[in-house]
Design a protein around this nucleic acid. Structure first.
Lengths: 201, 201, 201, 201
DNA sequence: CATGAATGAGGATTCATTCAT
DNA sequence: GATGAATGAATCCTCATTCAT
């Protein structure tokens, strides 16, 4: 591997990778704005500043594109939630940690969060996407269960508690997304406290 | 006017109303299953057991259909929430009343609830639908605010509290809808208690 | 035949005939305004103040309706042109007589005239309508030829002269129809004089 | 830029223009044969040998197509009538010149002439098309008026004279179009002479 | 006999996908 | 490899015609 090929790799590869990413980003925006069926592939091409045909050099079909997008973003969310999670911290701290990690993701990638919300269980998601969906969701749920197992959380059906907390989280993020509240650090912390109150033993 | 013509009137009118309702019901189901853009008008016709052209005798367009559906269901929800609401009851009771009324609607009309969730702020809703949306949402929010005003709820941004409680409610209903939890009276009551804990002063 | 049945006939028959005529009149108006393909059968029904199905009790199809309309009006025009035509009058008088008869028809039934103009040779006219069309047109042309035969008209291809005179006539009527000129008796007479000048030997 | 790219440009551009023209030509033929409402867009596509969707890459709608067609052809007619018209020639010569220019257009583009005749004042023509229509028609009429102003034409309502002459012209062209007369130079000249006789002072 | 609600074939238009350049 | 013009299947919608009342 000499310098020339190295340089070529550095400029050519990113160019290809950039284009792929531009398509994914454009698709993300449009799917959030208008939904999957409400978005035309050529519109994605225009927003990504590529030719319509180019999309099909990176993705086999519109459905493959939405699935790829879903998997990458869901995977990213999963990684951020679970990677290096403090397995032995006190339950209250673990809850807070989970909340803050989710919130960090939602604040940094509001559209990705909205996209994942919107496409939850959509019928054009393929088996592979559903597998990842299950894996991440169950991972998050397992965390909550482990908190509950230590008796510091109400003794209710775990899925119910997950529904409450995750639902509340979604509600807060959506209120922020729609501009009804600012999402300051204080608000985030206050909301987290509320949710802990909801489920603490 | 004899008995026969009277009977004819009785059977003919309902027939027309039945057909209209069959179309609205079929559309509700399909819009929930596949989304607005993912549903073809002939599919609605098949499920409603009418000819495709018939739909256009009752609704000017697919968009008019979805708007009509939205308005009727949102209106129904609003009426059930606000009609005869106990304005002078203690805050805790008012909260419970609101929760139970929402839950009654969601349990009786799970698809209508899902539909309203799904089409919240959709861009094919027209101004009239948005006006109703605003009216109902603000009415519900005003109720929560009045509870808060009496100092029995945390002194936080009202929209934040609404986001938390409404979000949690949606999360619970969705968990039930997806079959992850049963929606027994006990579960409902427990979830309500959790949410009150989340926001009580 | 007693008085009662006679009265019944007088009121019932005209009622049927009135309805038929109302349909034909409405169709005439609409076909002139928007053309055959641009006019929907229910629109005809509305303007005729009858039910849509009623039209099919009088005419087998939309095409049958337009053909019937064409035949009746063309026949009426033909009758008015040829009936009792002064076969032995001087050529100049015959020309004037023909012109005035056409003009009387066009002034009394401007829409019928426009309809006949518009549907000349339309491909939804059936063989019977075309036969009548040919018969009337050839009858009118024969009159002009007989004038020409007496040497008082230019010795040119008869079809050319017919084209000129009939075209000029159409042009005058259309100018009046569009409101560009009034169609006073003086104007009519002047135009007739012009056209005679065009073809006189 | 090498020869190859140059050639590519030369072949590609005309290909696009050819396709556009093929669509316009096919539409012209069909609109003349069956009328605007009687012609289906896919029929135009078949005759133009393009896919149905292709038409919409060149024209926004069927209505935009007919308007574009109308404007281009009317404009072409207007240009041919007025460009370099001998403003100072004797009235008789001007009349002949106008007649011959119109006839040249009608003989070279018989379908275009029929199309313009047929779509005169059609209600799907938009404001821009009507503006062009007015402009050309008034230009032609102004020419006739200037001839009249010099006292060499009968002192009648100008619109009446226009109606007569233009009508006669249309009648002659239609007779030729329908095969009732040949449109030889002699016939054309004879018809022109007739029309001058019709209006000369 | 009259009606007009119901229908489905057919029309205008869109869009996922392909392919020649 | 990238493009975007071309395509036709699929979509929304209209309307000639039928038929139960």
């Amino acid at each position: 591997m000499n310098i020339h090929s190295h340089v070529a790799t550095q400029t050519a590869q990113p160019a290809r990778e950039d284009k792929r990413q531009a398509i994914l980003d454009a698709a993300l925006e449009l799917f959030v704005e208008r939904g999957y069926h409400g978005t035309a592939v050529p519109e994605v091409a225009v927003r990504a500043r590529v030719g319509a045909g180019t999309i099909y050099r990176y993705f086999a079909s519109k459905e493959a594109l939405v699935n790829q997008l879903y998997r990458e973003r869901k995977q990213e969310l999963g990684t951020r939630l679970l990677e290096g999670f403090p397995a032995r911290a006190p339950a209250r701290d673990q809850f807070g940690e989970l909340w803050r990690r989710m919130m960090a993701f939602a604040r940094e990638n509001p559209r990705a969060w909205a996209f994942l919300e919107l496409h939850h269980h959509a019928d054009y998601l393929d088996e592979q996407s559903r597998a990842i969906e299950r894996q991440i969701d169950q991972g998050a749920e397992a965390l909550l269960r482990s908190v509950q197992a230590r008796g510091e959380v109400k003794n209710l059906e775990p899925s119910l508690l997950v529904g409450i907390v995750l639902g509340a989280f979604v509600g807060v993020v959506r209120a922020a997304w729609e501009g009804r509240i600012p999402l300051s650090d204080d608000q985030v912390a206050a909301a987290e406290a509320c949710c802990w109150e909801a489920i603490r033993a």
